[in-house]
C-alpha cells in the first residue's frame, strides 16, 4: 500500500526520512528514478541516506510499476519520484494512486512558480494534467502539518499562461 506518493526533486532527504516518515511510519521508501536506478554509486548514496529501520528500493519505471502492482497490502510504502512524468508513467502502468503530494520542484530556468517550492515547466504541466485526467488528487505540501493546497486545472492554466 502506498501511504504517500510524492514528487520531490530532492528525492530522499530530511523532509521524507524524518518529516513524513515520523508521521506515516512507513516500512519502505521506493524511489522510482531511471538515472539513479541505473547508477550503482548514486543508488548506494541514496540507499544509505535513510534510517536503518527503513527498507529502500530504487527502481526504474517498469520495475517500480510491477513492484507496486504486486505490493503486499500490509506493507506501507513512501513512493518518490523526482518529477510528474515518472509518477504519470506509474499511474498509466496501472498503479493506483488516488492522491499525489507535490513536495518539492525547485526553481530552474524556464519554470514558473506555482508555490515557493513548486516551479513548473511545460513538460511538468502536461504530466500534471495527465495525472488530473487519470483521477488523481494533486496537492502541494512540504511536510506534515504545513499548509496544503490542492492543485487543479485552473492552477495549471495560470502557470501555462506564464510560460
Amino acid at each position: 500500500m502506498v501511504s504517500l506518493a510524492r514528487i520531490d526533486d530532492r528525492l530522499i532527504h530530511g523532509q521524507v526520512t524524518v518529516g513524513w516518515s515520523r508521521h506515516l511510519q512507513p516500512d519502505r521508501i521506493l524511489l522510482c528514478n531511471e538515472e539513479v536506478a541505473a547508477d550503482p554509486w548514486q543508488s548506494r548514496v541514496y540507499a544509505s541516506s535513510v534510517p536503518p529501520k527503513l527498507a529502500v528500493a530504487i527502481l526504474g519505471r517498469e520495475a517500480a510499476a510491477a513492484d507496486l502492482r504486486d505490493a503486499r497490502p500490509d506493507r506501507r510504502d513512501i513512493l518518490l519520484t523526482s518529477d510528474p512524468a515518472d509518477m504519470l508513467a506509474l499511474v498509466r502502468a496501472g498503479v493506483a494512486l488516488p492522491e499525489i503530494n507535490v513536495g518539492g520542484m525547485h526553481y530552474a530556468k524556464g519554470k514558473a512558480e506555482l508555490h515557493e517550492y513548486v516551479w513548473l515547466d511545460r513538460d511538468d504541466v502536461a504530466a500534471l494534467r495527465g495525472l488530473l485526467a487519470a483521477g488523481c488528487r494533486l496537492y502541494a505540501q512540504t511536510v506534515p502539518g504545513s499548509r496544503d493546497a490542492d492543485i487543479d486545472a485552473a492552477d495549471l492554466d495560470r502557470i501555462e499562461a506564464e510560460l
Binding site: R10, L11, G14, S49, P51
Partner: peptide, 16 residues
C-alpha cells in the same frame, strides 16, 4: 549539517 539530508547526498555525489 545532517548526515542523511539533501546536503549530505549532494556532497557525497560530488565527492565521488
Amino acid at each position: 549539517d545532517d548526515m542523511a539530508g539533501s546536503c549530505a547526498v549532494a556532497c557525497r555525489l560530488a565527492a565521488g
